[in-house]
């Protein structure tokens, strides 16, 4: 019993980076913009979030500011993606890859410029858990779900909110139509460009936040490579979750469990660490192979819309 609680206590915060990045991917994707720069935007978020928080004092409050600035920085990158793909109609994949490299490079560069090369890496406070009165007393659920830090709560609320917006509001109906058939949306009087701008920027902001969470949760220090492929897995997660917020959340739980399992195995077996570290990726591959056939992908995912193109949609 205690083992399970311990495991889940670790696994649930482990979901955060996956969920935020994958929901961000989902958000842009539902409007038809396939962002592939997660890994880069998350690295940028991690670096910017850490640096802002560190320079302001490295406390809980500055961590919150750090998260917000990280989101803003990533959103700015998202706007570049939106502009280049909707207005200039460049290939989404190519721009996304460019942004990935830019994000990785900027993250590293900013850290060098602000901190420089130091013998002892600077540290910020990690986020404290905030037990929710009464609810945290419930056996099993209490310590695992209701005794977590603020971003974990945000992750759950966000997923619920996204579900509500997408499926229970007029805005969501419009947004989904842009990803399904932009020409139909356009002919119905919806601005495809505007929807894509918003969805891409907000999606990117979530990715930046997901990245910024990592140093604030795990060690309080930033290192290059801190994202460790979580961004790429977020793309897989969007597919595994069928581009639906509720299943993305479920899928993230699975990935987080794999990650924690891999971590625990590292200390207890003779299997090479490098091999164990491939676990989440192999799991993603296996899951994709079984689930992918049935997932519904937005029909216009990754395709730009040109109103005057005479090619049938």
């Amino acid at each position: 019993m205690n083992g399970v609680i311990n495991f889940l206590e670790l696994a649930i915060p482990g979901m955060v980076a996956f969920v935020l990045a994958a929901q961000g991917t989902m958000l842009g994707g539902r409007a038809g913009v396939f962002n592939v720069s997660q890994e880069g935007l998350m690295a940028l978020g991690a670096s910017v979030g850490f640096l802002v928080s560190y320079k302001l004092g490295g406390t809980f409050g500055t961590n919150m500011i750090g998260l917000a600035v990280a989101a803003a920085a990533a959103a700015a990158m998202g706007l570049i993606l939106a502009y280049t793909t909707t207005i200039l109609r460049l290939d989404q994949f190519v721009v996304g890859l460019a942004l990935f490299f830019a994000g990785i490079g900027l993250a590293s560069l900013l850290y060098r410029v602000v901190i420089g090369i130091v013998p002892q890496p600077p540290q910020i406070d990690t986020l404290d858990t905030i037990p929710i009165p009464l609810l945290s007393e419930i056996p099993l659920l209490g310590p695992t779900l209701f005794d977590q830090d603020i971003v974990v709560y945000f992750m759950f609320l966000l997923s619920g909110l996204l579900y509500w917006v997408l499926y229970r509001t007029n805005l969501g109906m419009k947004m989904r139509s842009v990803g399904e058939n932009p020409r139909a949306a356009d002919a119905a009087g919806i601005s495809v460009t505007k929807v894509r701008f918003w969805a891409t920027a907000l999606g990117a902001a979530l990715m930046g936040m997901g990245g910024a969470y990592l140093p604030m949760h795990f060690s309080g220090i930033y290192t290059d490579g801190i994202i460790a492929g979580r961004g790429w897995l977020a793309i897989a997660l969007a597919f595994v979750g069928g581009w639906r917020p509720q299943y993305v959340l479920l899928g993230a739980a699975f990935f987080a469990c794999m990650e924690i399992t891999a971590l625990e195995l590292q200390s207890s077996t003779v299997i090479p660490v490098e091999f164990i570290e491939t676990f989440p990726y192999v799991a993603a591959l296996v899951v994709m192979a079984f689930i992918f056939r049935r997932t519904q992908v937005p029909a216009f995912l990754g395709r730009n819309y040109d109103r005057e193109s005479r090619t049938a949609s």
Partner: peptide
Amino acid sequence: FLQVDTYTVTENIVLGTQVSS
């Protein structure tokens, strides 16, 4: 026809108009 295949008839018709959420 410029319709969203996965939407219902009503959803397709009201798409893009004001509907209170």
